[in-house]
Every structure is written in structure tokens, then in C-alpha cells.
Amino acid sequence: MTLITVENLSVRYGAHTVLSRVDMAVEPGEIVTIVGPNGSGKTSLLRAIIGATRPSAGQVSLKPDLKIGYVPQKLHVDPTLPISVERFMRLTDRVSRKQCVAALETAGVPDLLYRQMSQLSGGQFQRVLLARALINRPDILLLDEATQGLDQRGSASFYQQIEAVRRETGCAILMISHELHVVMSSSDRVICLNGHVCCEGSPAVVASAPEYRALFGTGTGGALALYRHEHDHNHDHDHSSKEAAE
């Protein structure tokens, strides 16, 4: 059964239309990535899905009793707020310490339970956010630019972690990113957004779509070449490592 269905969704802030007539859906177990330039409405779409933004038209329907794990873009822990990783993870869900440890293991940071949130590095922090989202065994993970502030290596390893999470738990993943080259290779489906859905499909299809190229290509000449190069490179690299593993 489809987890999330977005039909004909429009979002308006005052006179400014951010999203118009967006249709999309997420099926169980798939990794869907939303890409788009700044101001393309990516975050608004995610906010509409979790109910933080009221749509001006259209609707968002969730599967009944859908369990959502949400990984925010950035979470600011004020230095005046003392809070341990364990306390943070048990904030919204009634969970045991054992479940916390298990979720931290799945997220790749098993030893952080007693650390203070304010002492974590950027990469550790994002993984703790991921662990918190995983703790109640969600049907779907929503990630809003979850690798912001991480360097390229950090974010690549974070996305590998996401793929591992999917393998391990089978949950669907809907994420937003502007790091096309990193994200493309780990997605089943890419939705290219710019106020509306420009194009949609497998990473390879989207990467060669004229709408996508128009969005990320014009005026960036060299940068596009770089993206494409890196994307090919990553793809080949993954491919060969997979072969090597087999």
C-alpha cells in the first residue's frame, strides 16, 4: 500500500506560490530523492507532508497509522541546554535504553549514548538524529538536507548509512538534497522539483532529461560537467566495488 500520496498540492505563502500542482507518491521500501535548486519548494513539500505547512490546494494523504521518522535539516542545541544523547532519543517516544542502543547501532554510532549533544561532531550529530528517527521502527524516513554542514566525504558516508538502514530495516526513504552527484547513485527514483515537478524517474533518466539539464545546466557549464563526471565516477566506482564484493 502506498505510504504517502501527494495530489495536486499547492503551497502559497501570502502572494508567493512556492509549490503548484505537485503529484507524487512513495511506495514501501523505496528510496526517493527530491532534488531542486534553492527556493524550489523542496522543504515546503516536506513540511506539507509532516503537517507543518497547510496546503492552499490539493492534499497529502498518509497510509493509516503511518509511522514517520523525521531527520531535520539542522537542529540547534543551545549551549545552555544540557542534554545527553539518551535523553534526547527518549524525548518523544516511550522507549527503553536497549532500543536506544539498537537504534544508535543501526545508525553507525553505537558508543554515544551518554555523551552530551553539545559535544558531538557534525557527523555524529546527524547520525544521532538518524538514530532518533529510527527508534520507533518507522515505515518511512524523511530527511531534509540531512547532510548540510558535512564535508563531501562525511555526506557520502552518511548516504551509505542510509542505504544500509534501508537494507536492514526495509523502511522507505524520502529525502531532499542538492548534492546531486552523491544522492543520485543511492536513489531508486529521483523527483526534480522547481515549484512543480519538472521530471521524475530513475537517476539515469532524470540526469539525462532536458528539464533537469536546463535547471542545473544553464550557466553552470563547467559545474555541470563536473557533476556529470563525478556522478559517472561514483556510479562506476560503486559498480566495480559491488562486482568485487560478489
Binding site: R47, I50, G51, A52, I68, Y70, P72, Q73, L75, H76, V77, L81, I83, F88, L91, T92, L142, D144
Partner: peptide, 17 residues
């Protein structure tokens, strides 16, 4: 208490919860 703390940390996290 818990809801106030969550909302203090992150607004979206509150909505998603």
C-alpha cells in the same frame, strides 16, 4: 515538558512527532 523540549529543539521535529 517533553513536548516543550522537543519544540525548543526543532519545530519540524515537533510536527513530525
Amino acid at each position: 515538558w517533553s513536548q516543550l523540549l522537543t519544540a525548543t529543539l526543532n519545530e519540524e521535529l515537533a510536527y513530525a512527532s
